[in-house]
Design a protein around this nucleic acid. Structure first.
Length: 313
RNA sequence: GGCUCGUUAGCUCAGUUGGUAGAGCAGCGGAUUGAAAAUCCGCGUGUCCUUGGUUCGAUUCCGAGACGAGCCA
């Protein structure tokens, strides 16, 4: 029986020390290459608010899938899966082990579980659906979905705008109900043997302190200037995924004069904590995790030991 | 020192014509298939500052005290 090539996943909430851990693995001499699993780090020129590794860090420890698209562009879990699998194949062919490190749990999930054959997003159709929703409201759009795909409509809340829109889009583009496509058994399996390491805080209050510290460093470090620069350089608006990133949305509102500095900071902190919470929810639902306490002082060493064992086997 | 206003959930405050109270934010839990750092759903017992009085019953009305803010000396 043929054994699958190794891969390493390093997952954890924001500010849990993922980047430091991944860099340590590389610098400790293990034969690895790093792939970022982060829906915000893909954007060029968004450095401060995303806590992107510094140019010096990236020079020492190159990460794939950082700075790959403009802030006006849209990325997706499906695109990530294609990109990551291509990179993983290259890395493995070079005799190395891919280390996937990041906090976008849907991307990890998609990479591992695969996706069904759903139609790609269509901006024109979405614009039409939006127009219609403005007229009749999302609960009415939910009713329309119920006529086309009652199973999907039943599991979606009438206010879950994104999922209702997507389900309608799938029905219209494919001519089939989304639920029918998802019911088909075919699922691609990840052709790798992943060692899944989760960095989880033993005490969430400590993580919240680190989040607060890091957010204040972003404000001091020029987050507002970065957002100003982005708005001058690109035709951006608040509906773009890039400007919905935590910190950017709040900085945008501050620059528009909609909120004062204190409210901007509070909302930014709250959004970051909510993000960490959702990331932890994902981790709780995942199987075969090796969980490490991200507050542990010897975190990087523990991770290195785990990986060394996995790679030699 | 005198006067005025305030004291209710972790925070900011509603409210109870007297029948022991509820919003926003925070916090916690959950969902999640091409936007996911997105989108959405669920969760509220707290000496209603303390103490006396009136009352069948006071967080609510009255008196006294404590603390805070403002104004006047």
């Amino acid at each position: 029986m043929k054994t699958l090539p190794s891969a390493i996943f390093i997952m954890g909430p924001t500010a849990s020390g993922k980047t430091a851990t991944a860099m340590h693995l590389l610098e400790s001499g293990l034969p690895v290459e790093l792939i970022s699993v982060d829906s915000a780090l893909v954007f060029k020129d968004m450095d401060i608010g995303t806590a992107k590794p510094t140019p010096a860090e990236l020079a020492r420890a190159p990460h794939h899938l950082i700075d790959i698209i403009d802030p006006t562009a849209v990325y997706s879990a499906a695109q990530f899966r294609l990109d990551a699998l291509a990179l993983m194949a290259d890395i493995t062919a070079r005799g190395k082990v891919p280390v996937l490190v990041g906090g976008t749990m849907l991307y990890f999930n998609t990479l591992e579980q695969g996706m069904h054959d759903l139609p790609v997003a269509n901006a024109e159709l979405r614009a039409q659906l939006h127009q219609e929703a403005d007229l009749i409201g999302w609960p009415a759009m939910h009713s329309k979905l119920a006529a086309l795909d009652p199973i999907t409509a039943a599991r979606l809340e009438p206010n879950d705008t994104q999922r209702i829109e997507r389900a309608l889009e799938v029905c219209i583009l494919s001519g089939k109900a989304m639920s029918a496509i998802l019911a088909e058994p075919a699922r691609e399996i990840l052709p790798y043997d992943p060692l899944k390491i989760a960095l989880v805080p033993s005490d969430r209050a400590v993580l919240h302190q680190r989040i607060a510290l890091r957010f204040d460093q972003m404000l001091d470090g020029g987050l507002f200037d970065e957002v100003k620069m982005l708005r001058e350089k690109y035709p951006l608006n608040l509906d773009l995924p890039s400007m919905r990133c935590v910190g950017y949305r709040q900085a945008w509102e501050y620059l528009e004069g909609e909120v004062d500095l204190k409210v901007c900071r509070e909302k930014g902190l709250a959004a970051t904590r909510q993000l960490a919470k959702r990331q932890l929810t994902w981790l709780r639902g995942m199987n075969n995790l090796h969980t490490l306490d991200c507050n542990a002082t010897n975190l990087t060493q523990l991770a290195q030991n785990l990986c060394a064992t996995h790679i030699t086997i």
